[in-house]
């Protein structure tokens, strides 16, 4: 690549520096907001799939199967182009005309609901990894099934799945790049835009890549700390990926 003309300083020039900062901010914001939908919703669905109640289990299974078997990009288009058409007219109008930040909020919703299906699977597998005898022991001492979840099964299940939840969070962080397809100016799209304006492709993409790697590294280190702190004495931590 001898003929390539390096131009790193351009990234610090106006307006490109600002583009990267705002893109990075949007990426982080989308990830955090989507996660705050995905974690509680996914937990509820994962729990639903382990209960004795058939209808609840069925609803949970359908949710997970639907969301994980449709490409995320197709889901993004469904939420953005299709759902407003199918809503009752008044709502549809509101979504199309008056809803603030439509692209941003749509991508948060889409990523949140999709990631919930992944979280649900982790929570379910964590709960299923706990021996049935634990459930019996809780019931035998008079706890209600809900109390058994609250005090016995969930505290252990969440500890088991810290590493997989970490990679799911990183998943939503990376997947936030799909928001660019409906016009959200997040990190990847800003890098692309800089490339188109300045032809400094390598510099722009490298910067974006570096930022993604940095966040990934920080999150993994932080979650290792969480895992260490919550480790049950006498057992061995599994270690985030």
């Amino acid at each position: 690549m001898g003929s390539y003309r390096w131009n790193w300083p351009i990234l610090l020039a106006d307006p490109y520096y600002g583009w990267i900062v705002s893109g990075f901010g949007n990426t982080c914001l989308i990830a955090v907001l989507a996660w705050s939908i995905a974690f509680p919703l996914g937990s509820a669905i994962g729990i639903a799939r382990t209960t004795e109640l058939r209808p609840l289990r069925l609803v949970g299974t359908i949710y997970v199967e639907v969301f994980r078997n449709i490409p995320l990009l197709a889901q993004m288009f469904l939420w953005y182009f299709v759902v407003p058409e199918l809503l009752p007219q008044d709502w549809g109008h509101w979504v199309k005309r008056d809803m603030p930040y439509p692209q941003f909020l749509t991508s948060v919703l889409c990523l949140g609901l999709y990631t919930a299906s992944r979280v649900a699977e982790q929570v379910r597998s964590g709960l299923e990894a706990i021996p049935r005898g634990q459930h019996h022991a809780g019931l035998a001492m008079g706890l209600t099934p809900a109390q058994v979840y609250r005090y016995v099964r969930l505290p252990v299940a969440y500890r088991i799945i810290i590493p997989s939840l970490t990679s799911d969070f990183l998943g939503v962080f990376k997947n936030s790049s799909l928001a660019l397809t409906i016009g959200v100016l997040e990190l990847t799209s800003q890098a692309r835009q800089i490339e188109e304006y300045t032809f400094a492709a390598f510099e722009a993409f490298a910067t974006a890549t570096l930022l993604y790697c940095a966040v990934t590294g920080i999150v993994i280190l932080a979650m290792r700390q969480v895992e260490r702190r919550t480790r049950i004495p006498g057992t061995i931590a599994i270690g985030a990926q």
């Binding site: 990376k174 790049s177 799909l178 990847t188 993409f205 890549t209 993604y212 790697c213 990934t216 590294g217």
Partner: peptide, 8 residues
């Protein structure tokens, strides 16, 4: 590679 979005 696993820290990078596929789109990127």
């Amino acid at each position: 590679l696993r820290s990078m979005p596929l789109i990127l």
